[in-house]
Computed example of a mutant assay.
Amino acid sequence: MEEPLIPVVPMSHTAHIRSHRKPRRSASTIAMRAGVAGGVLSTLAVAGASGAANAAEPVTQTLELPTLTGDVSAQVAQSAAATQLAAANYELQAERDAAAAAAAKEAKKDLAEAKKKAEAKKKAEEARKAAAEAAASRSSERSTLSASASASASTGVSAPASGSVSTVIAFLKAQVGDAYVMGATGPNAWDCSSLVQAAFKQVGVDLPRVSQDQSMQGTDIPLSSVQVGDILYWGGKGSAYHVGVYIGNGQYLDAANPSKGVVIQDLSGYPASGAVRVL
């Protein structure tokens, strides 16, 4: 039997050059290409099946939040701590502001009270000085009146009636503000009859000590004709329980009672029962 002839392929005229030779494909390369091709076909098949499944059922996607790294967690914690610290500082500042406002209000109140007390103290001091000056003035007037009365008594000459009345009225007015004490006879406390007796004694007229007897002295005068210096009495003539002296303009001066002391009052508020004139 004859062996078959194997055709001889003529070589390229550049085949003997190494860089012009076509690289031979190794079996591994071929296998890899075959695997890739198969994988692509498999992928297409799976994609097709997935597309069909997607067409049949809705797909729910789940988004996963990125996991915080250690640095980010630390930054968040620091930010929270800073926020808390700022809030605490704001609260503390608010408390301080409220306390300062309360303290300022209290200080203003204390200052107002201090000013009020200072003004009251000043007024009290002024009143005390005025009272002292009035007392000194009354003492001076008493001394002058006493000296005048003594001079008149020593010479045996009576002053004119008008002058005598003015002396009586001046003495009475000098005692305004003195106390009323039953049975007292001066110089800083009187009852009604002792004051009238002392006033008329300044001009040399001696009157009885008690109201009942004083109402019996001098000349009876109708109340419609009463004049300055007349003695007013309350109660019956000879049984009067109170006396005073008319000083003009519808007023009289008397040692009224323990609550009022020596005062000037309106006759209309406490009309007298009668009047007598001794000057």
Results as ranks from 00 to 15, higher is better:
residue 176 V to I: 15
residue 85 L to E: 10
residue 55 A to I: 09
residue 151 A to W: 10
residue 274 G to R: 05
residue 134 A to M: 09
residue 68 L to N: 08
residue 121 K to I: 06
residue 39 G to P: 03
residue 171 F to Q: 07
residue 114 A to Y: 00
residue 162 S to Y: 00
residue 21 R to G: 03
residue 230 D to P: 09
residue 129 K to T: 05
residue 238 G to I: 12
residue 14 T to L: 12
residue 81 A to N: 08
residue 130 A to F: 04
residue 16 H to A: 04
residue 14 T to V: 15
residue 128 R to T: 02
residue 78 Q to W: 01
residue 113 E to R: 11
residue 227 Q to F: 02
residue 100 A to C: 09
residue 266 D to Q: 15
residue 125 E to H: 09
residue 149 A to W: 06
residue 170 A to R: 08
residue 189 A to Y: 10
residue 205 V to K: 11
residue 174 A to N: 04
residue 164 S to I: 03
residue 78 Q to G: 04
residue 237 K to A: 12
residue 190 W to I: 07
residue 144 T to E: 08
residue 181 V to Q: 05
residue 274 G to L: 07
residue 145 L to Y: 12
residue 217 Q to H: 03
residue 26 S to V: 02
residue 29 T to D: 08
residue 217 Q to C: 13
residue 231 I to E: 02
residue 203 V to C: 08
residue 40 V to A: 13
residue 112 A to I: 11
residue 120 A to Y: 11
residue 15 A to V: 06
residue 250 G to R: 08
residue 133 E to D: 14
residue 22 K to E: 10
residue 143 S to V: 12
residue 46 V to Q: 13
residue 70 G to W: 00
residue 162 S to F: 06
residue 156 G to S: 07
residue 108 K to M: 02
residue 97 D to C: 04
residue 123 K to V: 15
residue 253 L to G: 04
residue 144 T to M: 07
residue 241 Y to K: 01
residue 91 E to S: 15
residue 78 Q to Y: 10
residue 123 K to C: 05
residue 135 A to S: 07
residue 255 A to R: 05
residue 57 E to H: 07
residue 205 V to H: 03
residue 248 G to Y: 13
residue 56 A to H: 06
residue 96 R to S: 08
residue 109 K to R: 14
residue 256 A to I: 04
residue 130 A to N: 07
residue 219 T to Y: 08
residue 207 L to T: 06
residue 131 A to Y: 03
residue 245 V to D: 00
residue 85 L to V: 14
residue 140 S to V: 09
residue 91 E to N: 07
residue 104 A to R: 14
residue 220 D to N: 01
residue 136 A to R: 13
residue 129 K to L: 02
residue 190 W to C: 13
residue 94 A to P: 00
residue 90 Y to I: 14
residue 80 A to F: 02
residue 34 A to K: 10
residue 224 S to D: 12
residue 47 A to M: 09
residue 196 V to W: 01
residue 97 D to A: 15
residue 131 A to F: 01
residue 47 A to D: 06
residue 149 A to Y: 03
residue 112 A to L: 09
residue 225 S to P: 00
residue 260 K to L: 03
residue 92 L to Q: 14
residue 108 K to F: 03
residue 116 K to G: 14
residue 43 T to R: 07
residue 201 K to Y: 14
residue 223 L to C: 13
residue 56 A to M: 05
residue 65 L to V: 13
residue 163 G to S: 05
residue 159 A to W: 01
residue 177 G to V: 14
residue 129 K to N: 01
residue 32 M to Y: 06
residue 208 P to I: 08
residue 119 E to S: 15
residue 51 G to L: 12
residue 214 Q to I: 03
